[in-house]
Structure formats: C-alpha cells, structure tokens
Design a protein around this nucleic acid. Sequence first.
RNA 1: GGUCCCAUCGUCUAGGGGUCUAGGACACAGCCCUUUCAAGGCUGCGACGCGGGUUCGAACCCCGCUGGGACCGCCA
Length: 443
Amino acid sequence: MTTRVRFAPSPTGALHIGGGHTALFNWLWARRTGGKFILRIEDTDMERSTPEYEDTIMSGMKWLGLEWDEGPDAGGSHGPYRQSERLELYRENAEKLVSDGSAYREGDAVIFKVRPDVDLSFDDMVYGRIETASDALQDRDSGALKDIVLIKSDGMPTYNYAVVVDDHFMEITHVIRGEDHISNTPKQLLLYKAFGWKTPYFAHLPMILGKDKKKLSKRHGATSVYEFRDMGYMPDAVFNFLALLGWSAGEDREIFGREEAARLFELSKVTRKPSVFDPDKLNYINQEHLKRLDPMVRLAHIKPFWEEMGLPADKHDDAYLAEALTLMGGRGQTAKELAGFSDYYVSFGPVKERWNSDGISGELRAGMKEFYAALTDAPEWSSDALEAQARAWTEEKGVKMKDYAMTLRFALTGMKVSPGVFEVAALLGRDEVKNRLAFFGLG
RNA sequence: GGUCCCAUCGUCUAGGGGUCUAGGACACAGCCCUUUCAAGGCUGCGACGCGGGUUCGAACCCCGCUGGGACCGCCA
C-alpha cells in the first residue's frame, strides 16, 4: 500500500514556521516511503479564508521546496482538494449518521451524539499509546458529555468532522500534524467508529515554542516563511533547520539537504518534547549552507539583496561578482548580511559614504601616498605580487604593514573588516584601485 | 475546573538498565592562524527537575510531586 499523507492548512494567513514544520515532516515521510504528499485546503471558515492566503501558503511551500503530488492546483484522483468544494460529500455522509441514529438534527445543524464508555485509545507513532475514552469529551462548564457538531447551521462542516471525511475519502494512510491536535483525535476516532471506517495511523509532532517557551507567535518576531526569505535566509537552510526541530538525523549529522533528509527520516525517531526556536542556530545553519553554495548559485541568492540596496549589480559580469563572493568566504550569516558586507565590489558609492579620513595624520598620509604609488605601479597585478610588494616596502621603511593595510582596506572598502586587502585590490583591478585612492587623496 | 501530553547542558539533541567520570551541535569564553573580520583548528564553561521505589546496578523501568504545554467553539 502506498503511503498517502497530507498537509491541510486553512487559508487564513501566510505559511508560518509551525505550519512549515508540519508540512515538512509530511513531505519527508512521503518521500521517505515513496508515497504521495497531498495538499488540502481547509477553507470552511468563510469569514477568514481568502484565495490570496491560499496562494501565499502554496508559494511558501514551494519556496521551502515542499512540492505536493495532489492538490487544488495539481489535481489528482481524490479531489477536489478544497473543502469548500466538497460540501455535498459532508452533507451526504452526515445524513448517513442521522439515518442510523448516531447523529441528530438541530435546526440546520447536524450533531453527533456522544455516548459514554467508548474506548478511544490509540497508538500514536510518535507519542505511543494514548489512553482515553468518550467520557473525557465533556463540556467545560457543566462537565456533561458534549455532543460533536458535524454540520454548522450555515451548512458548513466543522473541522473535526470534515477532517475525518476527507482523510477517509482521500485515502490518507498517515495523519501527521501538530501536537495540538492530539486532543482532537479521540473525537475523530469516534466518528471513524460511527462510520465503520478504517482509521489512519496518527503521528503528532511536538510544538515549536518561542524563547519564552510559549507557542511561537508574531510577538516572537518573524514567523512567516516569507519574512525569513526577506531577511536573507535560504530555503534549504530553513528546511534544514526545521527538520532538526523534533528530529535528529543521527550520527551527529546536522547540515544536510532535502534528499538526504528524506533518505534518513524516521517518524519513530521524532521527539516528543516541544522545542524552542533558536535564531542563533538558524543563523549558523544558514551560514553553513551559504558557504557550501556554488559561486554562481550563491551569486543568484545575493544579487536580489544588492539590488534591493540600490546597487547596480547588473553593471558587472557575473564571473566578477561570483569571484567577489568567493573572496568573502564564510563571512555573513544571511544572504542579506553577505550582500551588505560585499557592497564595495558592486559600487564605490557606499565606500564614499563610509569614508572618514579624520584619523589619518598628514604625516602618515604622506607616507601612504608613497606606499600606494609603489603598489599601484606594481608590474604584476595579482594578490601575491601586491602583497610581496607591500611587504618589501614596509620592511625597507621599517614601518608596520598593519597601518598601511588597514588604511588601504578602508579606502577600497569603506570597512574596517574585509577579506585579505591585497586580494580585494587584485579583484577590483588596477584602475579601480587607483581611482578609489585618488578620490581620497591617497593616490 | 476536566482530559491528555511532556521533562538530559541557556538552546537543539544523542542516549532505550551496566560501555555515562552523560556524547555532538549552536551560543558563550580563551588560544592558534593573521594586514582586519569571518572561516578553520584546539581548549574550556555547561545538563540527567525533586522524592520514593524496582534492581546487584538506573538518565534510562514504576509511582508521587513540581514545573511546562495542548485541548475542552456551530475556529481550524
């Protein structure tokens, strides 16, 4: 039997980190088992659901690399994939329960009658055996058994009912969802029993918490996957980070790609403890992915951020820019940060803005002019040659390389930190170096 | 209030009775490298919530406590 899993968001907001996490684990399990990953839109809340949010969620999933096999746009043999298009199915089946006496009507609503002493225990693939019974389905205030609304007065199905009908008819084999649904499961089990349907396997995932150990929300800062994209995090890194929340690949494996994760993933190895979202770790993972990118791919990730800063990245050829990024090495934890650290390769503008020559005495300035003149006239324009030249000159004069290198760095980059200054100079080219030095009166 | 779930370094985790003086990663501190900052290398700091059992032996099993969390909507 092929595995069939689903991610069933309701289009009432952007794809959040928590939703992404759930979608990701479903995706992993589908890929791991060679099964199907289904996207189902739970848009029965007419008030809050919008097509725009549906689009946002779908593109958020695509950004994360979580492609689905069946869904509203992808089609499939078990559609339609929007609950709003399955209304007839819910009504028909609710009718069955009314006919056999397990549900009753109350106005336009259909309500399931909950009887006591029904064992609703189940085996969760993550949490293990969970013992409970229908007696626990009580009303918060009265403590009396509380019946389950199937169809609301407006004709729409409720979540707990629609989920059961859909998972059954879509032939979902594994229901993988957040731990907050663990206490909804008994209710759903009751409906499966009433219909006489086979129950799927359940696997609940630990929640993701903020630093204060409260459920992650907007007040913890960025929570939608798009915010992470805009801050310069890469999809592979966010994927990697999310996969590590509640699961470990074993053998101390922490940096990996989608395919590797899909190969290694095991539901049985998912943790039960809720995990705290740690931005530091995300930064680290993003940096690791950033470092590993091929130069041209890396460039593709950085370019948009340069452009966002108003830098004319298109004025240069890609080979030059890619080389510049290679020079940057492991600097920068996000694409945005790296773009900021490397702006001087793209344009002289930012350098001028940062320049401040107050700290350079006239005396030193004179020496530096001589130093830079010797440098820019170097017969060979390469990093090694420039460095050799600089060393020879500073040794001969008995001065510290550091003073000269630092000023050169600042004149070329407008920063006090950068890759090896002779490498930077070599890449910028003789003309550009002369130009920058001249502008600051050092040439 | 009721039901259910959870509990190893600050954080993510490994660990499923002895090999644990508890391993890795992030973060933090220091050192090395060095024209700067990263990167990299090395070192350090740092945890089994508490109390009872079970056992020759518990981080691992059981019970209680404490502390978190989720749910108890004609929201999903």
